[in-house]
């Protein structure tokens, strides 16, 4: 019996491209966030409100990821910022190579912050490094306060959690305190924000945090 020892990471190819992306982003002094969440949690709305609130302070560019359509990129484009849409044609997550190619289309622009809005999915994007500085997981109150316990890998890999649609709490059984407690039980180092993209509650706190992360 002959055995070949391999001992190689299954996602080594993605990881290598992610490291190249990370070097590219660092070279351009970008602060890059990989926004992950389930579908409909408000990722694009958060990007829109963030652009609106910070337009006089710093410049943002956006890479949008969706299974189909360029609807999100069209929404963001209305704010006049560099944006490129990745359509994954069915794939449930973004990969580093897709981000590298998309970034090539906007890199000539002048910006300090890059949002990569991942495909809405709390499972698969957790395993794929894109070269970002950090992952931000968005969870909305309408999803229920147990989501961190059900999708621990995503919350474990993230650096910040945004509890969105906080304005809807009076109409829901969801407790934002329980949601926060559950998220912190998975990952006690998570930075927690509570926001509403309808009333703009908490948006300025979130924007101020981004400002502290911008590389001078």
């Amino acid at each position: 019996m002959s055995v070949i020892t391999v001992e190689r990471k299954v996602l080594e190819k993605n990881d290598a491209i992610a490291q190249q992306n990370r070097a590219t982003f660092k070279n351009k002094n970008l602060f890059t966030m990989n926004l992950v969440s389930s579908p409909g949690s408000g990722k694009t709305s958060l990007v829109e409100r963030t652009i609106h609130h910070t337009k006089d302070k710093f410049k943002i560019a956006v890479i949008e990821g969706d299974v189909q359509t360029s609807l999100d990129a069209e929404r963001v484009d209305a704010y006049g910022v560099p944006v490129v849409q990745i359509v994954t044609q069915g794939a449930c997550h973004l990969e580093a190579s897709l981000v590298r190619d998309a970034f090539g289309q906007i890199e000539k622009n002048n910006f300090e912050v890059l949002f990569i809005e991942n495909v809405g999915n709390l499972v698969c994007p957790a395993g794929y490094d894109l070269g970002e500085d950090l992952k931000v997981v968005i969870v909305s109150t309408t999803e229920g306060d147990d989501k961190p316990l059900k999708y621990p890998a995503m919350f474990r890999n993230a650096s910040a959690v945004i509890i969105n649609k906080i304005d809807l709490v009076p109409y829901l059984k969801c407790s934002p305190e329980t949601l926060e407690k559950n998220a912190l039980s998975i990952n006690p180092s998570l930075k927690v924000f509570k926001t509403s993209c309808t009333t703009d509650e908490g948006i300025s706190v979130w924007c101020e945090w981004i400002e502290t992360k911008i590389k001078k």
Binding site: M1, S2, V3, I4, T5, V6, K9, L11, G127, A153
Partner: peptide, 12 residues
């Protein structure tokens, strides 16, 4: 959290 190809076994 790892995913790794450890070894490949061939027929003799």
């Amino acid at each position: 959290t790892e995913m790794q190809v450890e070894e490949i076994e061939l027929f003799d």
